[in-house]
C-alpha cells in the first residue's frame, strides 16, 4: 500500500458511503430501492422508477461482460503518469447497471464487446479500495 498516494480520491457522502465501505470489505455493493427493488448505480437519494427514498444495499455477483473500453495513453492528472497506458473498461453487470474500472491482467488484443470479466479489489490507501476487472 502506497503511503504517498497522489491520485484523485473520492469524497463520499452519506448517500454513497456504503458503496465505499463495501469495497474496503472486498464486496461490490449496489444500491437498491427498498420499495420497488430497482437496482441503481451510481448511488443517489431517489429511485427513478418509483421515487422512493428508501434504500438498501445488495452484494453484486461480481461478474460482468465488457460493454466498451478505452486505453489511455496520456496522463490528464500527474498521479497516473506512471500507469500509462491503462485500460478502462465499461462493464455490464448482471444486476442491470454498469461499472467503470481499470482492467488487470487483460491484454489489449483480448478486448471485445461481451468479454466476460470478474470484479477484483485493490486497496490503494487505508481508506480507499478501488474496484478493478480481471480476466475470468
Amino acid at each position: 500500500m502506497d503511503t504517498t498516494y497522489d491520485k484523485l480520491v473520492p469524497a463520499p457522502t452519506p448517500d454513497t458511503q456504503p458503496y465505499w465501505d463495501g469495497l474496503k470489505e472486498h464486496r461490490l455493493r449496489l444500491q437498491r430501492c427498498a420499495d420497488c427493488g430497482k437496482v441503481r448505480h451510481y448511488p443517489r437519494p431517489m429511485c427513478d422508477a418509483c421515487w422512493s427514498m428508501n434504500t438498501d444495499w445488495v452484494d453484486a455477483a461480481g461478474t460482468g461482460t465488457v460493454h466498451s473500453w478505452t486505453i489511455t495513453h496520456y496522463a490528464f492528472h500527474p498521479g497516473w503518469k506512471g500507469d500509462l497506458p491503462y485500460i478502462l473498461l465499461t462493464v455490464d453487470l448482471p444486476e442491470g447497471v454498469r461499472l467503470n474500472a481499470q482492467a488487470r491482467g487483460i491484454s489489449e488484443s483480448a478486448l471485445r464487446v461481451g468479454l466476460p470479466v470478474k470484479v477484483g479489489f485493490e486497496p490503494v490507501t487505508e481508506e480507499l479500495t478501488l474496484p478493478v476487472f480481471e480476466a475470468v
Partner: peptide, 17 residues
C-alpha cells in the same frame, strides 16, 4: 466520485468508450 479515482478524468477518456 465514481470514475476519476480509477483514472477516467478528462472528456477524451470519458467519451472514448
Amino acid at each position: 466520485e465514481f470514475e476519476m479515482p480509477s483514472g477516467a478524468i478528462a472528456p477524451a477518456q470519458l467519451y472514448a468508450p
